[in-house]
Write a protein that binds this DNA or RNA. Structure first.
Lengths: 109, 109
DNA sequence: CCACGAGTTGCATACATCTTCAACTCGTGG
DNA sequence: CCACGAGTTGAAGATGTATGCAACTCGTGG
């Protein structure tokens, strides 16, 4: 274990720190998608999408396979789905905290 | 809801995408810490630590209070603990996937 | 009132990431 | 064999993020 765990965690979260990559993962959680299908859903250039897919491939969060004239992507493990669900849940909770601290306390006390 | 959810998620993960910030959160999950205590544990310059604390404050993940001659930090909500635990669990799972895919398939085909 | 320790803030530099264009690879079909 | 559509890769410019130094704020104690 050369890399300290907290650094691995940071790298991992960094991978998730991009809107397009989040969208890709969410779409792939529903079902496998061909690249051109993702392209229809996510407004980015083909090359840019490909770059983000490469990032996700490098971290083993997704895998690709060629099928006919197209390349299909899918999430590499069910844990990825779990992760996104957990994130959604926790983010919702934190948004509450966020609101509270941003709100000048309406009429509390 | 001006900001799309997937972008909020990305921002959120980006906040976690830094080793020092991960360490800070982990330490604060154990108990509240004064800045100089964090400084002892996390090898960074005082100013750098302060910057990271500012990032975490901005996203409402931690809060600070002055007490005597020092400033104490704590996690803003228990969900933060949940999040780090979830992350650890899921990261462990993914590391397995990682290992498998990194292994050149011993004697396949 | 002054000196200090504890933290913070403001930059300037260095570094990493994102975006886009163009060139290139690979199968498929004519 | 050539033309094409689907994806990928490489490189350059634009942005964003991190780091370290110096200057500054704030309470505390002498």
């Amino acid at each position: 274990m050369g890399v300290p765990l907290y650094q691995a965690k940071a790298e991992f979260f960094k991978t998730l720190g991009h809107p397009a990559r989040i969208r890709i993962l969410e779409l792939l959680c529903e079902r496998d998608h061909a690249v051109h299908e993702l392209l229809d859903q996510i407004a980015v250039e083909p090359s840019s999408l490909s770059q983000q897919l490469a990032v996700l491939r490098r971290t083993s969060m997704v895998v690709s396979r060629r099928e006919g004239g197209e390349v299909l992507y899918s999430v590499s493990a069910p844990e990825v789905r779990d992760l996104l669900l957990a994130a959604r849940r926790i983010l919702t909770e934190l948004i509450h905290v966020y609101d509270e601290s941003a709100t000048p306390a309406p009429a509390s006390t």
